[in-house]
Write a protein that binds this DNA or RNA. Structure first.
Lengths: 177, 177
DNA sequence: TCAAACATGTAAGCCGTTACATGATTCT
DNA sequence: AGAATCATGTAACGGCTTACATGTTTGA
């Protein structure tokens, strides 16, 4: 639904190819918006057909050709229009919580092992966010202003992971002590 | 993908109709697993065809007939099998964060209004969770043991909403002061 | 009288994932 | 020699949403 607008946001700040966008997703929006490269290529195609994007084929001697997409004025209008339409808070589908909810005594050891695995993932995610935060904090005022919005989304990620880890502690001490 | 197992979890603890399940979802798993009634009816049909569920038609004089589904032994095995397979942490698709990430100075007032709306939703959600928590805390030991797993998922909801609200405070004081 | 709750579904379409497919260059 | 990175896609399938569809009873 709004992969469309996520792409428009990224291309408004700088043109790029499908491959570029997939990379930029990982570093930025990817923390709160999921998108595979297949989906991105498909969406880029659709958006050009709709006239929200245009592209030029860049020939490269050393690497394969790449299609560089830019946002059109129609695309910018579409994005500005979307900004004004309220969105719903995200729907959550958390399979691990379904498991925990339905766990019986015989399942506890498995749950524990899976909790350990998830904890590793969340811890790593948190550390990645904290490293990015350090860059922001150490930047000069101009850069801090420039990256204010990305920084706020980063703060969301940090608080979210901290909350998860703190919950995991609660679960461990409730079930396994 | 695991709506299937969410339904099996609910039906293992008690048989019920599609309508019942839709209600039970709202009160329990619905906080971390989304499911519309259409989806539930479809899935119930599929699961009976697979032999994981069976149903009897209950005729009611005062209300429309209802199909009451129960889990079969095949269903119980499928659920136990699923418990042993690790699941991935949920993918997040948060449109509001995309907006915030891409917001320009002229969008700030709209963002502020939308933040206010989201805050109301999250606050209400938190209050609902806290009310449920009170029931648990005031229950006797036997009931607290019975509802230990649902309680832990409730704690997840509480921490998650608290983290969101605390982040919203940060956003407000960063952007609007 | 009208809304809400009870009760169960079908159909169309979109969105997204997984798997498949190809091929060059660069680094270890 | 093999893995990783650069680069772009198609196809099949499944999951989920939105809209459509119908009809009863109870309470305000």
């Amino acid at each position: 639904m709004s992969l469309k607008y996520a792409i428009l946001v990224l291309l408004r700040s700088e043109p790029g190819s499908g491959y570029d966008l997939a990379q930029r997703f990982k570093l930025t929006l990817g923390n709160f918006w999921n998108a595979s490269h297949q989906q991105i290529y498909l969406e880029l195609k659709k958006l050009s057909e709709e006239g929200l994007l245009e592209y030029t084929v860049e020939h490269q001697t050393d690497k394969p050709d790449r299609k560089v997409y830019s946002i059109t004025s129609l695309g910018i209008s579409a994005l500005q229009g979307w900004m004004r339409i309220p969105v719903s808070p995200p729907r959550i589908n958390d399979a691990f919580l379904v498991k925990l909810y339905g766990a019986q005594p015989q399942d506890l050891e498995i749950i524990r092992a899976e909790l350990v695995q998830h904890r590793i993932i969340h811890r790593q995610q948190l550390e990645k966010f904290q490293a990015l935060e350090q860059f922001f904090i150490q930047a000069d005022v101009a850069r801090r202003r420039e990256f204010q919005m990305p920084y706020l989304t980063l703060r969301r990620g940090i608080k979210s992971e901290e909350a998860w880890l703190s919950w995991a502690d609660e679960v461990e001490s409730t079930l396994f002590q």
